[in-house]
């Protein structure tokens, strides 16, 4: 009687040891702890601190008193803030389609294994590695009246160059041109990598069916990179919503606040006027806008993927 009992206990013990290899182990937390610590201190904590600040009358050197939604009411009464929301959407409208379409066009042109294509790919991508300071410096030299490159070119034809930095109708377009030039590298590379993943045999089959280049593009290439196209749009919307450096360095938000994006409004409010509470409230609105845009894109993608 004693023997079988012993054997049974040993089996049960060994079974208990072996079943739990996928069970949660607290010590595994150590592996993700470094990342989680940084994530919590640099992202989660500031996020909630920002929300807390937006309900306070705070300045740069004191946390102030609780004012409820007052900062939000002040924001929506401020025509400059409403203008900055409009400016940001206008800028996204100007840049995102341009980045997606020009990026796609460049990728289609440069998707070949020649040396010149490789050089041009590097060349088009090279602007992306520049800092915003250098980019805006270059474009200021292009746009600057009387002495700029544009003025010289117009001068050859005896014409006056448009004032891209000062004309109320052109200032945002000027910033958009500089931004597209700066940011075109990433969409181009994403499209190139997508294009290179399309199986060659589909193109061969199309060639056997006598499909022309337009039909191949429309029926094979574009449907194959649809998901990348949506990815590019999402990434660019999120990035371009955060316009700051170009507007600050090229036009300071002028003329008449027509190129002041939300981030510059936040900067003006929080760091120049020391009204941190109002700046935090504006940041929360920007957070919501980006969240809505990203979620809308995500839902569209998911629905299409399901279909």
């Amino acid at each position: 009687m004693a023997e079988p009992r012993t054997a049974g206990t040993a089996t049960a013990r060994s079974r208990r040891k072996s079943v739990d290899i996928y069970a949660p182990q607290w010590r595994n937390f150590l592996f993700v702890a470094p990342y989680l610590t940084i994530f919590a201190t640099l992202l989660v904590f500031p996020l909630f601190w920002g929300i807390w600040l937006s309900f306070h009358k705070a300045d740069t050197f004191s946390s102030g008193r609780f004012v409820g939604l007052d900062n939000y009411f002040r924001l929506f009464r401020d025509p400059i803030f409403m203008q900055s929301i409009w400016n940001t959407f206008y800028f996204v409208f100007l840049t995102v389609p341009a980045l997606a379409l020009i990026g796609l066009f460049l990728a289609l042109c440069l998707n070949r294994r020649t040396r010149s294509a490789a050089v041009l790919r590097a060349l088009f991508f090279s602007s992306s590695v520049l800092s915003v300071t250098i980019v805006t410096l270059i474009w200021r030299i292009v746009f600057i009246p009387d002495l700029g490159l544009l003025s010289m070119v117009y001068g050859l034809f005896g014409a006056q160059a448009p004032a891209f930095l000062a004309d109320p109708h052109l200032a945002m377009i000027g910033i958009a041109i500089a931004t597209v030039w700066w940011c075109i590298g990433l969409p181009m590379m994403l499209f190139l990598s997508a294009l290179q993943q399309i199986p060659q045999d589909i193109y061969e089959a199309a060639a056997l069916d006598n499909a022309n280049r337009w039909q191949t593009l429309w029926s094979i290439t574009l449907p194959s990179i649809k998901r990348t196209f949506i990815l590019v749009i999402i990434i660019q919307i999120v990035l371009q919503f955060q316009l700051f450096g170009q507007a600050w360095l090229m036009t300071r938000g002028g003329p008449n606040n027509l190129t002041k994006p939300i981030v510059l409004y936040i900067y003006n409010t929080a760091f120049q006027r020391w009204d941190i509470g109002l700046g935090a409230a504006a940041s929360e609105i920007l957070f919501l806008l980006i969240l809505i845009a990203a979620m809308a894109q995500y839902l569209v993608t998911r629905r299409k993927a399901d279909a």
Binding site: P145, D146, L147, A163, D167
Partner: peptide
């Protein structure tokens, strides 16, 4: 003069 920034105005 119109459309000049600070540096441009000095040069002009």
């Amino acid at each position: 003069t119109k459309n000049l920034d600070y540096g441009g105005a000095i040069n002009a």
